[in-house]
């Protein structure tokens, strides 16, 4: 086989230039990388610059390998299809690396938030436990105080009830002896009445009419007995005669029992007498009722008879 030498070719400058441009364009077209390779390079560069470099290095390595294969294959025109496929795989691997990195970051965030929440909840639970404990202590103290107070009240109440029972018992006894005394008093009074139909006696205040309590009222009551009205009618006639004089109705009791109760009872009794006198025509503006309780005793309160004498109504017709 013979080898012939290439002949020397002479071409003008313009043609040379045109040929140069054509060659350059042709070379340019031949070396322009396919879109898949450009995308793969971009994806890989982006993934390498992001968190995937630290969080998904294995995926990035796969992408790098595929990209290298793509670059090698595409440099040979015969393997363009192969190169495009490798570029595709490289791009996906880079995307997978980014996705895995994103997942790892999200996991970290979840873990941090969960930890944060747990810490805060624990802190709050501790605070709540402290508050609860303090509240319980306060409540316990308050309950102990209440229990002590309730005990004191119970003791006081029991003492009071015992005292009341004792007082009731002695009052009942006293009532029994009062009734006896009243009977004897009544008998004495009846004798006195026989002697003095109008027991009006003058003293420093004026004319005083004394009416025994048991004649006018029942024991511990302030409503007039029917027999009292007859006596008071006589008194009313005297008061009506003394038209210009003021009249004071004074109620008295013995010294037994509560002074307050006695004063109240004597006041109600005096008021009952006054009301009756007014109802009989006596001028209301000249009659005053007063309850003096056990004041000014006229007899010894130690005996039943004395106490009976002290339970009385005095009607004082003042001097003109």
């Amino acid at each position: 086989m013979r080898v012939t030498k290439n002949p020397t070719i002479h071409v003008p400058g313009a043609v040379t230039a045109a040929l140069g441009v054509m060659v350059a364009v042709a070379v340019g077209c031949a070396t322009a990388p396919p879109v898949e390779l450009i995308s793969a390079r971009t994806a890989y560069a982006r993934a390498s610059a992001g968190p995937a470099a630290q969080l998904a290095p294995a995926d990035l390595r796969k992408a790098r390998l595929a990209l290298d294969q793509a670059e090698r294959a595409i440099s040979d025109e015969r393997n363009l299809g192969k190169g495009v496929d490798f570029a595709y795989i490289a791009e996906r691997n880079a995307q997978i690396a980014e996705a895995h990195a994103g997942t790892a970051l999200a996991e970290k965030e979840t873990s941090k938030a969960t930890q944060d929440l747990g810490d805060k909840q624990g802190k709050m639970a501790k605070q709540s436990a402290g508050t609860l404990s303090a509240a319980r202590a306060q409540l316990g103290e308050a309950q102990r105080g209440e229990a002590a107070q309730a005990q004191e009240i119970g003791v006081e109440r029991a003492a009071r009830q015992a005292a009341e029972r004792q007082a009731d018992a002695s009052e009942q006894k006293a009532d029994a002896s009062d009734e006896k005394a009243a009977a004897s008093e009544q008998r004495a009074q009846q004798a006195n009445d026989a002697l003095h139909r109008s027991p009006a006696q003058p003293d420093g205040r004026g004319t005083v009419i004394v009416l025994p309590g048991n004649v006018l009222f029942r024991s511990n009551r302030a409503d007039l007995l029917p027999v009292a009205m007859k006596r008071l009618d006589e008194v009313a006639s005297v008061v009506l005669v003394a038209q210009e004089q003021n009249v004071v109705v004074e109620g008295y009791t013995d010294s037994k029992g509560s002074p307050w109760k006695n004063v109240d009872l004597s006041r109600r009794r005096a008021e009952a007498v006054r009301t009756y006198l007014v109802s009989r025509g006596c001028p209301a503006d000249r009659i005053v009722a007063r309850g003096l309780g056990p004041d000014r005793p006229v007899a010894d309160n130690a005996s039943g008879e004395g106490r009976a004498n002290n339970r009385r109504i005095e009607i004082v017709i003042n001097r003109p």
């Binding site: 996906r92 995307q95 997978i96 996705a99 895995h100 994103g102 997942t103 999200a106 996991e107 965030e109 979840t110 938030a113 969960t114 929440l117």
Partner: peptide
């Protein structure tokens, strides 16, 4: 398919992270 799975997991994890936050 691997990218599909990675994206699905990533989305789930992001949702979980958001819920925790």
């Amino acid at each position: 398919a691997e990218l599909s799975l990675a994206l699905a997991h990533g989305e789930e994890q992001k949702t979980a992270a958001q819920a925790a936050i």
